[in-house]
Design a protein around this nucleic acid. Structure first.
Lengths: 289, 289
DNA sequence: CCCTGTCATACCCGGCGGGTATCACCGCGT
DNA sequence: ACGCGGTGATACCCGCCGGGTATGACAGGG
């Protein structure tokens, strides 16, 4: 076997080109000139004995092997930066195997405060518990944060987050509600169905990103819950959110339970290979809630 | 942030030193001289701003941060070599996104032939199915093969294999049996309990590796099933194996069902981030069995 | 037809990764 | 006490390769 491992430099370069599909822009993003980048990709292709990019007239496209390398390479790069970040964090606090290092917990900003509060309180009451740093993040960012090492553990919400590749423990299950402008006729209803909510004339359902991209539809693309709250209050959209979101409703909002919406399950999740005592302590505490 | 990713060269060097706990031997293993290796590790420590190794008189030991980097670094290295291997495989066969690439399926050697046969037959009958290469492996090697890209998918046996970090689908559940020398008095029994089997005078229970190391105990350490078969036939040990192992019993063996042994669940498992059409096809076929 | 935008080629240079020689240190044996 | 073996660290040198600049080849478009 000529090659059995790739340098992270090669992976960085290739993923940049594969994402931009343009050598010039990729080189700029990497802070280097275009020719050495071209050469590096050629060397990589020779080393692997595989064609990764199809250079057509006017642009570049990925071959099948290129797509594989883009996926696998991203995972490998994330693992490498995660190694750097976690090592750095481990070294900051404890001397030798004390494992009293601080843990970084990623939570969806504006998520259920109640559960988080209970978890943090219970953990703080534990003798010798690790310090917890709470890292608020975007709607579906937790997976990325765990993968690249910016976080050690996260609160995730199935079915919105994918738990693939992580170990997890179930914490809480709740229903979902529709949030409407208070003066809308449907706000008076006792319950609604997903079909009814998805098809209100003049009030399209808001969309949020699932794994990086927005699903198609007429509704506005939102990024956080305050955006959603504003648009609902203005009578421009309707939202479907977990029950615990009642906590942040405004006077201009009305909440109506959804009869047929899938339940939202909150998990505590962490990288499957973690072996940290501090993390184990937090998980044990969480499982007892 | 001074550093946000590590070079695989740095990871290779560090894991070598961390495993050997000796710069000279590590350098030899890496095929280089000791001084540049020392320097590389020092640079890595400076780059991370963290002490990784404790240089005592007479030898080297890991700090807490060093242990973290050893774990995370191994994962990152596996991911990088997996990227290389899978890309190489993807490029070998298909041109462009055909995804008719061959899949490598890791199976425990001497595992249940029956299930494997059924799976391969059903898959071959599928129109346009990917070619499957069967990679026989040691008792608990499947996880490693999936992680470092030598395999794309594996048959695993809970609770012996850990499914952490993989996606999986349940295929089959079976009981376990005790395999004894045919002329042993207990061979006549209708059923046995784990406690009885574990405490037979002069016939210690064979041990096999769990995640790389052998559990403590008086019995012989075995690596594959033929070894076990031989030792049982010689009247030197007794084994506990899944029901389907009846297929390879010898005349000198006797099988006795175990009343209280935990059931063995065979899963088909694959890396959680896989997105290959060929793999999806195999999994769909497997799920229908 | 030339101009523009693309990636590839040609050539040069500096830094750094690696080698050899050597040092500093410690434990140990006699 | 002293020398020796074995450890990792330091000093110094060199060649390679990663990166830069200049330029070429080629295809579309106004």
């Amino acid at each position: 076997m000529v090659v059995d491992t790739l340098e992270t430099r090669e992976l960085r370069y290739f993923t940049a080109v594969a994402e931009e599909l343009h050598f010039g822009r990729a080189a700029e993003r990497l802070g280097m000139a275009q020719p050495p980048l071209s050469r590096a990709i050629q060397q990589l292709e020779r080393r692997l004995g595989v064609r990764l990019l199809e250079r057509n007239r006017r642009g570049v496209s990925l071959t099948g092997a290129g797509e594989v390398l883009l996926h696998e390479g991203r995972a490998a790069l994330d693992a490498a930066t995660a190694a750097a970040r976690r090592t750095r964090r481990a070294g900051g606090a404890d001397g030798q195997g004390g494992s009293r290092g601080r843990l970084v917990l990623a939570v969806k900003a504006a998520g259920s405060h109640e559960l988080l509060r209970k978890l943090l309180d219970a953990h703080a009451a534990e003798p010798g518990a690790a310090e917890i740093e709470v890292l608020p993040c975007g709607i579906c960012e937790q997976e990325e944060l765990l993968r690249d090492g910016r976080a050690d553990v996260a609160l995730m919400h199935a079915p919105f987050n994918s738990l693939a590749g992580f170990d997890s423990e179930e914490l809480m299950t709740e229903g979902q509600i529709a949030v409407l402008p208070a003066r809308h006729p449907l706000a008076a209803r006792g319950t609604l169905s997903l079909a009814e909510v998805g098809d209100i004339p003049g009030l399209p359902l808001a969309r949020w990103p699932r794994h990086g991209t927005y699903p198609p539809g007429p509704g506005p693309e939102i990024r956080d819950l305050t955006q959603l709250a504003q648009l609902i209050a203005l009578g421009r959209t309707v939202g479907v959110v977990p029950d615990s979101a009642r906590a942040w409703l405004w006077a201009e909002h009305a909440a109506v339970p959804l009869a047929d919406a899938p339940p939202v399950v909150t998990h505590i999740a962490w990288p499957a290979h973690s072996r940290s005592l501090a993390l184990a302590g937090l998980i044990r505490t969480a499982a007892r809630l």
